[in-house]
């Protein structure tokens, strides 16, 4: 494996080729907020909370650190005014389904009218069930703003015994729905 050198928040770090910025940052004790990430699962790159600013050869851009693979001489900034603004806006958009992040970013109200109160559609449950449990009992139904979490009724019986995705759930929907599906 090739070793790659890069700079994250002013700190020179080494990483293995193929690692993501998020992984390398965490190994080096540098914090990047995430929502849809879980170490047991393949990175999905969908919540965009982990956006960081990178520059290579002078060109700057914002990327999702959980899916961006490290490059030689990359300079990464994990925080800036612009990045904070994006993260706060995402939290506001998800209000009130992500209480922990809301607290972290000091968001105590939203300028938007929420349409979901229990689910932020992070997909952790779906991915856990597919990748770890290999059961596919929960899935995404619909496209665009109609997207929602749904159970496969034939498999939902299993959920009651498994409940493994419950502690991943950010919004609480899985916990509440599973009860109602069972009854």
């Amino acid at each position: 494996m090739k070793t790659i050198e890069l700079v994250i928040d002013g700190k020179k770090v080494q990483a293995e080729e193929g690692a993501t910025i998020l992984e390398v940052a965490r190994e080096n004790g540098i914090y990047i907020p995430t929502l849809c990430h879980d170490d047991q699962l393949q990175p999905a790159g969908t919540c965009r909370m982990c956006m960081v600013e990178i520059s290579n050869n002078g060109r700057k851009k914002l990327v999702a650190s959980c899916v961006y693979e490290v490059e030689e001489n990359l300079v990464v900034k994990t925080d800036s005014e612009k990045i904070r603004k994006i993260r706060r806006m995402i939290v506001e958009l998800l209000w009130p389904t992500v209480p922990a992040l809301a607290k972290e970013f000091g968001v105590d109200k939203s300028r938007f009218v929420p349409e979901h109160t229990e689910c932020c559609l992070c997909g952790l449950c779906v991915r856990y069930c597919a990748e770890v449990k290999k059961l596919n009992a929960v899935y995404f139904k619909g496209r665009g703003i109609d997207r929602e979490i749904a159970f496969v009724p034939e498999l939902a019986d299993e959920c009651v015994y498994c409940r493994e995705c419950f502690n991943l759930c950010v919004g609480g929907l899985i916990v509440n729905q599973c009860g109602s599906v069972y009854s």
Partner: peptide, 22 residues
């Protein structure tokens, strides 16, 4: 149109379009 044609996978697009439409 876009709110219903987006895949709905990432938050900025899905939630952004939802609120823009509202």
């Amino acid at each position: 149109f876009l709110a219903h044609e987006s895949c709905g996978k990432c938050i900025p697009c899905r939630e952004g379009l939802r609120q823009m439409l509202r």
